[in-house]
Design a protein around this nucleic acid. Structure first.
Length: 271
DNA sequence: CTCAGTGTTCAGTG
DNA sequence: TCACTGAACACTGA
C-alpha cells in the first residue's frame, strides 16, 4: 500500500519524531532478507550518528546521517513506521527497530517483509543506482510526454514504471486514469496532447489530494474511484453497492492490465 | 486449505 | 540492447 502519499506522510511523521535523534543500536529480525547490506556494516554506520534531514524520491525514503551517509527505507507493500518508548508498546510485525539515546525507538513495521533498509553514499548516487525517474510530483508535462509518447505498452503499467516517474502504485494509477478519463489499456503512443495534459493534471490532483488527507482513504473526496475498492468501509456494503462509478453510478469494470488488478469505468474511460 | 494482493526484480521472448 | 510480459518473492487475512 505505501505509495507516494503514504511515504510522504511517513516522512512528515519521522520529521516530528525521530529526526535529530542519536542512534545507539539496531535490531533486525530477518537481516539477510530485509537489509540490503550486512547487519554489522549498517550498525557501525549508524551507531553514534544523528538523523539530520529527510528526503523522498517516489516511494523511497532517504535519511541523511550526521556522517553524510544516507539511510534508505523502502516500505514494500506493507511497511509503516512507529515511534515509541516502552518495550510493551512494540507494534506487531516490528521487523527492524532503531534505538535512540533518548530512550525512544523507531520501528520499521512490515508484515509481509517486502520492505528494505539499506545505506547509500548520497541521494544522487542512490537515485542513479536505482535508475529512478523524476518524482511524480515534480515531473513536468514535457518530461512526461517525451518519456511516454513513443511507448507501445498500455499506459497503466508505464505509470507504474518507477524509471519513468517515481511514486505511482496500483491504486493511484487507476485513480489517475479515472480522473483523466483515459482507459488503462490504451497504448501510450495513441494518447493525444490533450490527454497527456489531462494525465499530468490528474497525477498532481490525486497525489496532492492524497497527501492533504494524510493518505487516509476514507476521507478522500466522493469523486474518487478508490472508494470502490472497498478498503474504507465503516458500514458493511456489498460488492455491487461499492463497485460503481462515482460519476455514473454504473458498474465498474474490474480486469487485469499488466498483470495487476485494475478498476475503471467503461463509460468515462472508453477504449 | 486456498488464494488475492501489494511493489520490485528478474528471466524469457521478440 | 531495448521494450515488453509474466512469474516470483513472503506473508497475512479473508
Amino acid at each position: 500500500m505505501p505509495e507516494l502519499p503514504e511515504v510522504e506522510t511517513y516522512r512528515r511523521y519521522f520529521e516530528e519524531t525521530a529526526l535529530g535523534q542519536t542512534v545507539m543500536d539496531l535490531k533486525a529480525e530477518d537481516p539477510r532478507r530485509q537489509l540490503t547490506i550486512d547487519y554489522d556494516t549498517l550498525l557501525q554506520a549508524l551507531k553514534g550518528t544523528q538523523f539530520v534531514s529527510t528526503h523522498r524520491i517516489g516511494k523511497h525514503f532517504l535519511i541523511t546521517l550526521s556522517t553524510g551517509k544516507v539511510l534508505v527505507l523502502h516500505f514494500g507493500m506493507t511497511g509503516d513506521l512507529a515511534y515509541y518508548r516502552d518495550e510493551e508498546d512494540t507494534p506487531q510485525f516490528a521487523r527492524i527497530v532503531f534505538y535512540f539515546q533518548n530512550g525512544f525507538r523507531l520501528a520499521f513495521i512490515d508484515s509481509r517483509k517486502f520492505g528494505r533498509v539499506g545505506l547509500a553514499a548520497s541521494i544522487e548516487e542512490y537515485q542513479q543506482k536505482k535508475a529512478l525517474g523524476p518524482d511524480a510530483l515534480d515531473i513536468t508535462l514535457a518530461e512526461l510526454t517525451t518519456s511516454l509518447e513513443k511507448r507501445k505498452a498500455p499506459i497503466k503499467p508505464l505509470l507504474l514504471d518507477q524509471k519513468i516517474l517515481a511514486g505511482i502504485g496500483n491504486w493511484i494509477a487507476d485513480e489517475v486514469l479515472f480522473q483523466a478519463k483515459i482507459n488503462p489499456a490504451k497504448t501510450a503512443n495513441t494518447l493525444n496532447p490533450e490527454e497527456f495534459e489531462q494525465l499530468h493534471a490528474a497525477i498532481q490532483l490525486v497525489l496532492n489530494t492524497a497527501i492533504e488527507h494524510e493518505a487516509l482513504y476514507q476521507t478522500f473526496p466522493k469523486s474518487f474511484l478508490i472508494h470502490a475498492r472497498g478498503w474504507d468501509e465503516v458500514v458493511e456494503t456489498t460488492a455491487s453497492e461499492r463497485q460503481v462509478c462515482p460519476r455514473h453510478h454504473t458498474p465498474l469494470a474490474i480486469t487485469k492490465v499488466g498483470g495487476r488488478t485494475t478498476y475503471f469505468c467503461p463509460i468515462c474511460q472508453p477504449l
